Amino acid sequence: MIVRILGEGQLVLEKESLVELNKLDDELMAAVEAGEQSRFDAAMGALLGRVRELGSPLPVEELKPSDFILPSAHSSLDEVRDLLSSDGLIPG
């Protein structure tokens, strides 16, 4: 599966990583809903960090459709709130 982190590029991840990433996404969603900045910062860092750890960068010249798109590490709580769906940032 292909994941884009805005401002960073695309990464290839195994579908099996979705279970772990959805747990991190749930924590991020809870932090956003609670409006807790420090919890949001930690959850956002954990989610993006784990995607970077699990993923392999896709070469820039190999642009492919992304299965989902994550906000940049510099996104604010309000910006992420606007991007959330009922499933969070990661579908499933």
Rank of each mutant, 00 (worst) to 15 (best):
V60Y: 06
Q37C: 09
I2C: 08
K64Y: 07
S85N: 05
F40M: 00
E27W: 09
R39G: 00
S38H: 11
D78L: 09
D25M: 08
L89H: 07
E79M: 09
E16Y: 02
L24S: 09
G88A: 04
M44V: 06
Q10R: 13
R52M: 06
P71G: 00
I69T: 11
L6P: 02
R4F: 03
S17D: 07
K23L: 12
S86P: 03
F40A: 01
L6C: 06
V12L: 15
P71F: 08
E14A: 12
I69D: 10
I5A: 07
L58T: 06
L18K: 08
V51Y: 08
N22K: 15
V60C: 01
A31W: 08
V51H: 04
S17K: 10
L77E: 01
I2W: 13
L70G: 06
S75A: 15
R52E: 14
A30F: 04
M1I: 10
A43H: 03
E8G: 09
L48R: 12
A46C: 07
L28N: 07
L84K: 14
V12C: 08
R4W: 07
L47V: 04
I2K: 11
A73V: 03
R52K: 15
V3C: 03
K23R: 14
E14P: 06
I90H: 04
S86L: 12
M44L: 09
E8M: 04
S56G: 08
A46Y: 05
S38W: 00
S85K: 06
D41E: 13
G35W: 06
L84T: 09
V19Y: 08
L70F: 00
V32I: 08
E79T: 00
L83D: 01
E16S: 14
I5G: 04
L48Q: 10
Q37V: 01
L11M: 14
E33Q: 15
D41S: 12
E36T: 02
R4C: 06
G55P: 05
R39H: 01
E16H: 12
M29H: 05
E20D: 06
E20G: 14
P59D: 04
F68H: 06
G55K: 03
A46S: 12
S86A: 15
F68P: 01
A30L: 09
S72D: 06
A30T: 05
G55N: 01
R4L: 11
E27K: 12
I69F: 04
K23D: 02
L77T: 10
G45W: 03
G45P: 01
L83M: 14
A43I: 07
L77A: 11
S75H: 14
G88P: 09
P57C: 13
L58M: 10
K15F: 14
P91Y: 00
